Amino acid sequence: MLRLLVVLFSILFGLAAMPAQADASKETAAAAAIPLRGTLYRVDHENRTAWLFGTVHVGQPAFYPLEPQVMQALHQADALVVETDIRDLAALQQAIAQHALYPGGDGNIARHLPSADLAQLKQALAQAGIPFANVQRMKPWMVANLLIVHAMARAGFPPEQGLEQHFLQIAASERKAVHELEDAAYALSLFDGMPPAQQQAYLRETLRELQDGSGVAKGIAMIQAWRHADGAQLDQLYRAMLTDDSVGARFTQEALLERRNPQMTDGIVKLLQDEHRLFVAVGALHLIGEGSIPALLAQRGYRVTRLY
């Protein structure tokens, strides 16, 4: 989901979306020299196989090349599966217009925020070097997420280094089929489904966390756990989110995970009926916990093996 927002950030602010390219020669480096990253599962059912790789949606050049076990799975797969195919810019722009922007004469966030929240937003935008005019038509949830993406970029994790772009480029070079588990309109509709008061609270909470640094710290903690394939730490961060009563944590758990994981699982099951080998790249949180995609596949009788 965050990767989709990264691409929207690039569209709206005119940033070049240049995916990180791993030098082909580096992919042949000794396995011992390349650390494990994220988490990797293998799913088998009736002579069909899917590899599930947990990603983070931002990155940096040091993340590449990925370790050989992941790359071998990707090269062996007949098709790549991602949350949303971020290459369809027309669909993204239509989804933005439908769900992320205020329509027509209603198009100014200043009309939808209390004066104190508006003042804090303008201050945060000024600190980030983003003109208010660039975001004034956006709904509060959209502005909040783009400020998070911007802050992570300034912390050293720029939007152009995300893993999905890397995988999509490899898939294109190998002429693999690419499937998405949900389209951009559905993904953005989850945020747009928040009532106005909840959107305001989400923005207010985001501004506070960006001001005190806790928002970026949470993002970096997740990335570092992924970077070192620290499953115990990833699980701890996930369980901490379950007890977090913040608007963002509740929304992530209820809307972005509990609602989407069963639907993503349905999509993978359906694709495995047509494809013999899939490489599935989704956010790492979708692979953690009792309601995770691996757990749901196991409940359906699929043989699920955690490779690391």
Rank of each mutant, 00 (worst) to 15 (best):
E67D: 02
Q69P: 00
A73T: 05
A73S: 11
A73N: 09
L74S: 07
L74N: 08
L74H: 14
Q76R: 14
A79C: 13
V81H: 10
V81K: 09
V82R: 04
E83D: 08
E83R: 00
T84K: 00
D88S: 06
L89T: 13
A91I: 03
Q93F: 00
Q94V: 05
Q94L: 10
A95Q: 07
I96M: 15
I96E: 15
H99M: 01
H99F: 01
H99R: 03
A100W: 09
A100C: 14
L101D: 10
Y102S: 02
Y102V: 08
Y102T: 02
Y102F: 13
G104T: 14
G105E: 13
G105A: 12
G105Q: 09
G105V: 06
D106C: 06
D106E: 15
G107E: 05
G107T: 03
G107N: 07
A110Y: 13
A110T: 06
A110Q: 13
L113Y: 10
P114G: 08
P114M: 11
P114W: 10
S115G: 10
S115L: 11
S115P: 10
D117M: 04
D117G: 02
L118P: 11
Q120L: 03
Q120E: 11
K122V: 00
K122R: 12
A124K: 10
A126F: 09
A126Q: 14
Q127I: 05
A128L: 12
I130G: 11
P131A: 14
P131I: 08
F132W: 13
F132M: 09
F132I: 05
A133N: 07
Q136C: 01
Q136N: 01
Q136T: 00
R137N: 10
K139I: 00
W141C: 02
W141N: 02
M142Q: 13
M142T: 15
M142F: 14
V143D: 09
V143I: 14
L146M: 14
L146Q: 11
L147K: 05
H150V: 04
A151Q: 06
M152Q: 08
A155H: 07
G156S: 05
F157T: 00
F157Y: 14
P158E: 02
P159I: 05
E160D: 15
Q161R: 05
G162I: 01
L163W: 12
H166Y: 15
F167S: 02
F167V: 03
